[in-house]
């Protein structure tokens, strides 16, 4: 066989393998989502015991007080995207332990099992009412959604893939900030992701960032606040420094509603605070209005 034939064969094999992996991960993840009928949970806002099944049917919003529950990345994708339109990209990254911190790998493995994710972020191709886009979702259940080397790399890849596909990017952020276990490498992801956004931006593509509870630290100070359009879910904690750090620094209690999305909209940093029920429709409208004819 000639050289070109070999390459084509190799590519075919590669694509096949990726598809296999995609299917496997999808199946595994859906199994985890079965929620027993009688599961009750306390709402963090109103403190009332509510049936989780009913809340989930109510778009993950508390029936009693309208609190938006923190969503897992998989749920978010299922909720926002058209059925079966999601194709995950960037699979197979392995988190390493650059500072040789004891127990870090074990911790990562524990979270991997719990969330059935590789890392605190997944991205891929998807459609919203038929409008194609590249979507990235952070998961705060994976080590508080902290940004280490792998998350940073995948975010950068999201934008590069979007440039390659000439598509807009939508990112749902939920993070406690940069991951301290990876030290300076985590810090540098801020520069890396911001540079990726800048490149995508300078080519004229759309980037919508949706801030969800909680978005703080290094993620706020990089790609989360660089969207052309910045949306936020109601009552989400958004800020650079955490509330506890600020309280310690200034030695007084923070006012009610400080660093919440409504507060930030008031101060002029967010385009719109949007109820989860309207989110898909609004995103669709935005994508439609930015559709490129070429």
């Amino acid at each position: 066989m000639n050289k070109i034939g070999e390459t084509i064969n190799k590519r075919k094999k590669l694509k096949h393998n990726i598809r296999l992996m995609n299917e496997e991960s999808r199946v595994n993840r859906e199994l985890d989502l079965d929620i027993p009928e009688g599961l009750y949970d306390k709402c963090p806002k109103c403190g009332k015991l509510t049936n989780m099944k009913l809340n989930i049917e109510n778009d993950y919003i508390c029936k009693n007080c309208g609190y938006h529950f923190r969503m897992r990345a998989i749920d978010r994708i299922k909720y926002i995207l058209d059925e079966d339109s999601f194709v995950e990209k960037g699979i197979g990254y392995i988190t390493l332990n650059p500072l040789y911190i004891e127990g870090y790998e074990a911790k990562i493995n524990k979270y991997k099992k719990e969330t059935s994710l590789d890392e605190a972020y997944i991205y891929g191709f998807g459609q919203i009412y038929g409008e194609p886009c590249i979507i990235g979702v952070m998961d705060s259940h994976f080590m508080m959604g902290s940004m280490g080397s792998v998350v940073g790399e995948k975010v950068a890849k999201t934008f590069e893939y979007a440039i390659y596909k000439k598509l807009p990017v939508i990112i749902f952020t939920a993070s406690g900030g940069a991951r301290m276990q990876e030290g300076i490498f985590s810090l540098m992801q801020m520069a890396k992701t911001s540079a990726a956004v800048a490149k995508h931006c300078s080519l004229g593509y759309l980037y919508v960032s949706v801030l969800t509870d909680p978005t703080t630290g290094g993620v706020t100070a990089s790609f989360a606040s660089l969207g052309d359009i910045i949306l936020a879910e109601p009552n989400a904690l958004i800020g650079f420094a955490g509330p506890r750090v600020i309280e310690q620094t200034i030695n007084q209690k923070l006012p009610e509603g400080f660093q919440r999305s409504e507060f930030l909209m008031e101060k002029g940093f967010i385009d719109q605070v949007i109820n989860r029920k309207d989110l898909k429709k609004t995103l669709h409208q935005i994508l439609q209005m930015h559709r490129r004819t070429v």
Binding site: M190, A191, A198, K199, A221, S225, L226
Partner: peptide, 26 residues
């Protein structure tokens, strides 16, 4: 580090840093 205080948050500490990073890359 960047100052963690009320005024700094109100005026968008995170947004200012992010904007710097984006523009410095260009």
């Amino acid at each position: 580090g960047a100052y963690p205080g009320l005024g700094a948050e109100e005026r968008g500490q995170g947004f200012a840093i992010a904007e710097n990073l984006k523009e410095m890359s260009r």
